[in-house]
Design a protein around this nucleic acid. Structure first.
Ligand SMILES: NC(=O)c1ccc[n+]([C@@H]2O[C@H](COP(=O)([O-])OP(=O)(O)OC[C@H]3O[C@@H](n4cnc5c(N)ncnc54)[C@H](O)[C@@H]3O)[C@@H](O)[C@H]2O)c1
Ligand SMILES: NC(=O)c1ccc[n+]([C@@H]2O[C@H](COP(=O)([O-])OP(=O)(O)OC[C@H]3O[C@@H](n4cnc5c(N)ncnc54)[C@H](O)[C@@H]3O)[C@@H](O)[C@H]2O)c1
Lengths: 220, 220
DNA sequence: TCACCCATGTGAAAATTTTAACATACGCCG
DNA sequence: CGGCGTATGTTAAAATTTTCACATGGGTGA
């Protein structure tokens, strides 16, 4: 189990660690070896004190007076975030969102291996998206078990989402990224995050209507 | 300017109002006239006290002992969220994400009218997606001005996102939904929300690695 | 009409998260 | 080798957000 200094920290910290990771990758690519919390924060619109605090939950990664070694911090964050290994993922729903996710090669680069896409539409089964096969939804159970799939992306219509989630969990999946606009009810040992695009647009509509409310982080 | 009792409330309240709205639509469709905060919360995994507090920032919508009238609350939330009008939206980037968004008809139903999609790929220009034309990116300026576009969805590669955002804002757009994995720097009177799918997956990876951390709301 | 039930709206407390401030440590330069 | 500039890690304070607890008022039925 990875290093951790404190046992409690904000939930938002994890999300930010992911942003730090990506920004550091960018710096690394551009040949920058060292970065201060101030400089990193400037890139991300996050206060430097926030960055230092976030990192301090997990260890002492910087050098006083110097800042952080980019490569070293990348390695540590990779470890903390659980990106130092491969994750076997399936997508359920070979529609627009499912296809977008399957086509996004950066996921593979990060270690998320999309093993298969499942759909119940006869016309889609047998085809493939970006090299990943579309398999019959009825076989998902066996596939998940045999391939020790741990993560799933749900990209089916809202009406089907709960049933799909139940089946996935039953088969052994313990983490779900859900695109369906519905609150899926799950056992508490299953991690589930929802991406709700309608809500994002509606929040924008609200803030357009009330222009006196000045707020917003880059992350939501 | 719509009703509001209090001038300060959590940013997360707006996101939840959107969830309430959707859940109420569902109830309404199923012929349910009245709902208690307890029942609504059960549907959404949100505490009833949270719901009552959220609503109380905007008005007194319920009847003691009775709960909330579904249709009436829907009407009020629609008004509060700014969904009682039409919003003219453009999508920039006719790739996978852009296409998914353009194909999602629920946005139109909510009043988000996707007026056009812009791309700089000659092969895509002139085609259409779900009835919406793909236009040359070079014309975006004029189009946004002429059609009084207020909202934009950025679905271009990260490297292009900042330039696209700048151009949009210059042309008059004041709200942006950004899918590019980069923190776009904007004037503070522009509302910008980012959807970061990689971060969601990475957060899941973290929580898989540290299974002792039990947390998660349905929303993130 | 009155008593009782029920679920709201709210004020206060608790919990969480962010921000500020600074003592501490590192490296550089003279 | 010691003083100086700098940016960390941390402690304490401030700000925000959630949860609790209950007084309040509407509806119902006797
Ligand atoms: N496209 C968007 O921009 C967008 C925006 C917001 C929310 N969403 C949500 O994301 C989800 C996916 O959206 P989409 O646009 O990709 O939908 P889509 O209709 O393009 O694709 C859905 C796919 O799921 C398959 N499917 C349906 N029921 C299934 C089942 N029981 N088992 C297996 N496969 C099944 C269908 O055959 C289809 O291929 C939906 O819940 C939608 O509400 C999408
Ligand atoms: N597809 C996914 O699942 C996914 C996941 C996470 C993040 N994203 C991000 O979302 C964004 C879009 O992803 P995508 O998969 O749709 O990409 P894509 O490559 O499918 O589409 C990008 C489109 O933008 C167009 N484009 C490029 N530069 C442009 C410019 N300067 N002006 C106008 N158009 C331009 C391209 O021609 C292309 O049609 C990217 O930033 C990507 O990193 C996508």
């Amino acid at each position: 189990m990875a290093r951790r200094k404190k046992y409690k920290f904000p939930k938002t910290t994890i999300e930010r660690l992911s942003y730090y990771f990506r920004a550091l990758e960018d710096l690394s690519k551009r040949g920058i070896d060292t970065v201060s919390s101030e400089a990193l924060g400037g890139k991300l619109n996050i206060k430097s004190s926030q960055i230092r605090k976030d990192l301090s939950y997990f260890g002492d990664f910087g050098k006083r007076g110097m800042g952080y070694d980019v490569k070293y911090l990348l390695k540590e964050l990779k470890y903390i975030l659980g990106l130092d290994r491969e994750w076997a993922v399936v997508i359920v729903g070979a529609g627009h969102i499912g296809a977008a996710m399957a086509n996004y090669d950066s996921f593979e680069k990060r270690g998320f291996n999309i093993a298969a896409i499942f759909d119940n539409d006869e016309k889609k089964i047998g085809k493939e998206i970006n090299g990943t096969p579309i398999l019959p939804y009825d076989n998902i159970d066996d596939f998940v078990k045999q391939n020790k799939i741990e993560m799933a992306i749900i990209a089916v219509p809202a009406a089907a989402a709960q049933a799909v989630a139940d089946k996935l969990v039953e088969s052994g999946v313990t983490a779900i990224l859900n695109f369906a606009p519905v609150a899926v009810q799950l056992d508490e040992n299953v991690r589930c995050l929802s991406v709700d695009l309608t809500t994002k647009l509606e929040a924008l509509a609200y803030y357009m209507s009330y222009s006196q409310d000045k707020l917003w982080k880059i992350y939501s």
